[in-house]
Amino acid sequence: MPISPVLASYSDLAYGTALVLYLFAMVLHFIEYAAARVPATALVTTVATDSDGSVATLVSPSSVPPRATAARIGRCAVALTGLAALVHAASLALRGAAIGRVPWANMYEFISALCFVAVAGWLVMLYRQRCTATALPRLGGFVLLPVVVLMFLGGTVLYAQAAPLIPQLNSYWITIHVSAAITATGIFLVSGVASLLYLLATRTGSRLGSRLPDTAILDRVAYRTAVVALPVWTFAIITGAIWAEAAWGRYWGWDPKETCALVAWVVYAGYLHARATAGWRGPGAAWINVAGFGVMLFNLFFINIVIAGFHSYAGI
């Protein structure tokens, strides 16, 4: 399958454009965040307790101008994120067309795809929550921050020219196994961010935390995303094992990548158990979720670059 350099260069252009757009959206989100003077938690409690008749005036946008501006900036940021995601999707599609296969066979491509999943997952989340009056959109900046950092690293130090697959990777399992891994990683990213913010928000007295949405909402976002991602991650590990059986002669060999994937899985299982264990709900569970994503990042960067450099598919 010949490579098309023209399509590949368009893909690179779209990648850069998406990155810049994400950056703008992130900045807008942070401006929105800074402009939102009324602590979100206070607002939510006011509505919920329904203490006096003043609820209507409090939420009415016209009577509190700074919040209205903030909300407008926020909507703008969400729209920009959506646009960036479209450009990002185009980058992935062009790369795929340029190389005639799924565009996720090296770290650059993997990171690009997983960031796309994270952003898309975030947008889906926003869409599904739009009817409930939460301060969720304001978290956009925190979701985009790791995306921007990852994509910057991917586009610079980890960048790889469009190239065909080496024979070891040339299997339909790459489509199945790697796309599952990407999807799970992208969603776990959103989950990890939510848990981090949850931890920030529960630290009473932190100025950053006071503007965050209610901790219950952050906790729910973290849980719901993790619950979607874990079965997908399980599927990724199982299909990885099936592929390993066909490619390397054994379905499980305690290869560092495999081991680390299992460790991450066990940590996420720990997260779900912690939420069902008295005394561990709340910050304890949130820490575990953050640790889980730490293992995922470790697996992506450290194991790939430092350890697996000597390993496995350098073999043949």
Binding site: P256, T259, V266, V267, T277, I307
Partner: peptide, 21 residues
């Protein structure tokens, strides 16, 4: 108990790491 299971899960994760490193 659930708490022990949680601890053992942790231990398993931690114990597996040297195998990767």
């Amino acid at each position: 108990s659930m708490r022990t299971a949680l601890m053992l899960l942790f231990l398993l994760a931690v114990a597996a790491l040297p195998g990767a490193l």
